[in-house]
């Protein structure tokens, strides 16, 4: 135990493997072709060959036994490539599900990030359009439902495979009390945070490459200080988001009875850190895509350019959990206790 803020050699290999895989198999054209549904079955099948769907599961259940830190590295590569596969949702659901077809990735799992309504409907489940299994909260229970995915859903900003799913129709298993779901949701927030860091990173790279290349007034637009300063904030937000996400993963993996001593800035409670990372990475991805799009000038607004795809997903992937005020207030409850009365 001592401070080490670099990736482990294993994680370096994981990053290299997945970045390589996604840049070969899922360049932005693949995400574009998969719109509006936002799912590419062929790509999912290739990811199965990498063993990615069951990576985080215990070895005795046929999984890869990867740590959350490892999964964070993978999730960032998913965001960076905006690959049209529900790997984040699947990895999060598998924090408690162990069925062999899920571990193998033959069946896809989704996380109903908001509880079911009075009629037992989980609305707008991310990956709900394509998942065979959905895990979520219905009343005071955590339930898992297996049913046929609709393979379509409402057209949406992030071109995400969203759909309403029933918590009661299909093969329903009660896993335990609603509190059991917290582990799943924490992991979903954590991995989504990492994916959002990846989106910000990609947006930064697109923006920087563009302004180095594009010339106006006889010089690259990237030599104008106003443009430089707008872009200079991006690596800061990215590095900050990455560190916070890794700290959350580290805490969820290693810390029991973590601290929530905000008054001394000592926070080692995993679930608290996961929500913090989610909020911070969401803001960072929004800012990075805003600025990168803007510094493309009119071309940033053209459908033909890729930055608009990142712009929409930066908002879609975070907003699906709920408005940021509600998420911020849920964090406040963890930090300060709930408001009485």
């Amino acid at each position: 135990m001592s401070v080490d803020l670099g990736l482990s050699p294993d994680q370096e290999s994981i990053a290299e493997l997945f970045n390589g895989f996604f840049s070969n198999e899922a360049p932005p054209a693949v995400a574009r072709a998969a719109e509006p549904l936002g799912f590419d079955r062929e790509l999912w099948n290739k990811v199965i060959e990498l063993g990615a769907p069951g990576m985080g599961c215990a070895v005795e259940n046929g999984g890869g036994g990867a740590s959350l830190g490892d999964l964070v590295v993978v999730a960032e590569t998913v965001g960076r490539s905006i690959a049209p596969i529900p790997l984040i949702d699947h990895l999060a659901a598998l924090s408690v599900l162990t069925e062999s077809d899920l571990v193998a990735g033959e069946a896809i799992a989704a996380v109903a990030v908001r509880p079911a309504d009075a009629n037992g409907i989980w609305s707008l489940v991310p990956a709900g359009a394509v998942a065979d299994v959905v895990i979520g909260v219905d009343g005071d229970e955590t339930v898992v439902v297996r049913s046929t995915p609709p393979m379509s859903g409402p057209l949406n900003h992030g071109s995400m495979p969203l759909a309403d799913r029933s918590a009661r129709e299909g093969t329903r298993t009660v896993l335990g009390p609603a509190s059991l779901f917290e582990v799943v949701l924490d992991r979903w927030k954590l991995l989504t945070a990492a994916a959002l860091v990846g989106i910000a990173e990609a947006a930064k790279e697109l923006g920087v490459a563009y302004v180095k290349d594009r010339e106006q007034f006889g010089v690259p637009v990237g030599s104008f200080q106003a443009v430089q300063h707008g872009l200079a904030d991006l690596p800061v937000a990215i590095d900050g988001g990455r560190l916070l996400t890794h700290k959350a993963a580290w805490a969820l993996d290693n810390v029991t009875d973590g601290l929530i001593d905000w008054a001394n800035n000592e926070i080692t409670d995993g679930p608290t850190l996961a929500t913090m990372a989610f909020l911070f990475a969401a803001d960072g991805a929004v800012m990075a895509t805003d600025r990168s799009l803007h510094y493309h000038g009119g071309y940033g607004f053209a459908e033909e350019y890729d930055i608009q795809m990142y712009y929409r997903r930066a908002r879609g992937w975070s907003l699906i959990l709920g408005d940021s005020t509600s998420v911020g207030l849920s964090l406040a409850d963890r930090l300060f206790g709930t408001v009485e009365g």
Binding site: D239, L244, K247, W262, M276, L279, T325, L329, A332
Partner: peptide
Amino acid sequence: NEPTTRERMARSIIDMQVATLLTMRSAW
């Protein structure tokens, strides 16, 4: 107990964590 205050406070606390992590990175 004002929600706006609680949310702002929570967000500043995130900022303070990030700031200390970035500082710790320089030290590392």
